[in-house]
């Protein structure tokens, strides 16, 4: 490897959306054992610096490949498609669905049984997120980059919503 390799090459994985998570975790530890700055603690300053840059790169690669949204964005970037933070999907039906889910999230606390309401909402959001991931994998594998980009924008929406659901789940747990 070098710092110029792709993250997939670094971990010896095929550049596809579905990855072998066990292999990723195992190779991550293998690489860290090789390049963690601790291995270079007694070496010269220059070597320590180099090791730190490699280890940082390995950590960044691992973080990117582990997270489905970051992984999808990275795959598109490798294919020459950049998505800027301001961009949003033009799928009106999807946006409408998002608005309704958000409204439900805001109303959870007013429900008679907030714990059950957040469970149900969480289940639904997780399901949508998983479905969209499968969709991304399919369109990307078929080489349809425009559809891939649209799918990534939806994944970003859903992952943010999922995070908010989890935060509220924690808050509600804390109340008891």
């Amino acid at each position: 490897m070098s710092l110029h390799q792709t993250y997939f090459e670094m971990f010896g994985l095929q550049p596809a959306f579905h990855i072998d998570r066990a292999a990723l975790a195992e190779r991550y530890r293998k690489l860290q054992r090789e390049f963690h700055p601790d291995k270079y603690a007694a070496r010269s300053d220059r070597e320590q610096l180099l090791a730190m840059q490699y280890a940082a790169q390995i950590n960044e690669a691992h973080t990117t490949l582990r997270d489905p949204v970051l992984r999808a964005a990275y795959l598109l970037k490798l294919a020459g498609v950049e998505v800027s933070p301001e961009q949003t999907t033009s799928d009106a039906e999807f946006l409408m669905q998002q608005m309704m889910l958000r409204e439900r999230l805001e109303e959870v606390r007013d429900e008679s049984d907030p714990a059950a309401a957040i469970d149900e909402l969480g289940e639904e959001v997780r399901g949508l997120f998983a479905t969209e991931q499968r969709n991304f994998a399919d369109v990307f594998a078929a080489g349809n980059l425009d559809a891939g980009k649209d799918s990534l924008l939806k994944l970003q929406f859903l992952s943010k919503l999922q995070r908010q659901v989890e935060e509220l789940e924690e808050d509600l747990l804390g109340d008891y």
Binding site: M1, S2, E9, G12, R27, E34, R46, E47, L50
Partner: peptide
């Protein structure tokens, strides 16, 4: 030093990367 790092990664990934690629 950089070549050594690269060689270490190759070694660490031996048995994985090449055949899979």
């Amino acid at each position: 030093a950089a070549r050594r790092m690269d060689a270490s990664i190759r070694r660490a990934m031996q048995g994985h990367s090449l055949d899979e690629f």
